[in-house]
Every structure is written in structure tokens, then in C-alpha cells.
């Protein structure tokens, strides 16, 4: 497995790219809360994303991806907290966030 590991190796931060070109540098531990991203970045798969530590989402806009990233951090921060209030999501973008969340499996 180590033989075909990328030269860059596993970084602490990964890059999430939205369809309109916004890039988000996110802690790996937070990003991997999303099941889909975790699979993309799994070094055993040898996916492009895993090698370059960079996930591009051609269906998710920067605005929505920002919200998703916000949630990922929110989730990690409150992992062991009790009675965490739901994160605020502006109603007008909820449906898009919902689609993205379903796709990313968070």
C-alpha cells in the first residue's frame, strides 16, 4: 500500500472545490465526517482525490459548499456535546444544501 502512496502523503488539510471554483481548505478529520468525502479520500482506493487531497464537486456551488463545510466543523466541534442546537440554515438555500448533504451523506 505504501508503495503507491502519493508523494505528498496524507496532509492534515484537504481541499474541497465547488463547481464555481471556490476552494475550501478543510481539516481532514472534519471533512471525513462526510461519508462520501471519506471514501473519496481513502488512500486504499487510489482515487484521484485521495492522491491529490483535493475533491472537486461539479454539482455544488460555493455558497452551498461553504454551508456544508460550516456544518462539518460544527459537527466535529460538538461531537461529544449534549443537546446541541441545530445549525442555522437560511431557508432559501435549504433545498440545495439538502441535495448536497444527501449526496455527501452527512
Amino acid at each position: 500500500m505504501t508503495s503507491n502512496a502519493p508523494p505528498s502523503g496524507q496532509t492534515d488539510y484537504v481541499t474541497l472545490v465547488s463547481c464555481d471554483g471556490f476552494e475550501f481548505k478543510v481539516q481532514r478529520s472534519s471533512a471525513e465526517i462526510a461519508e462520501a468525502i471519506r471514501r473519496m479520500l481513502d488512500p486504499r482506493t487510489g482515487f484521484y482525490e485521495a492522491i491529490h487531497n483535493r475533491c472537486e464537486f461539479s454539482d455544488i456551488t460555493g455558497l452551498v459548499l461553504e454551508k456544508v463545510v460550516e456544518y462539518l466543523y460544527y459537527n466535529e466541534k460538538n461531537k461529544d456535546a449534549k443537546e446541541v442546537p441545530d445549525m442555522e440554515i437560511p431557508p432559501e438555500m435549504t433545498l440545495e444544501v439538502l441535495m448536497a448533504a444527501d449526496f455527501l451523506n452527512v
Binding site: 456535546a81 443537546e83 446541541v84 441545530d86 440554515i89 439538502l98 452527512v106
Partner: peptide, 22 residues
Amino acid sequence: NRGTRSLVETCIDVVAKHHADV
């Protein structure tokens, strides 16, 4: 009741709350 709820659940609740505007 530990940690956050999933983003999907949160979004669905928001949609249901604003059902009149959807």
C-alpha cells in the same frame, strides 16, 4: 441526544418549517 444531528435531518426540518414558502 449527543452531538449534532445530520445535515440532511436539519435541512428537512427547515424545509418542513417553511413549507408554505416552498
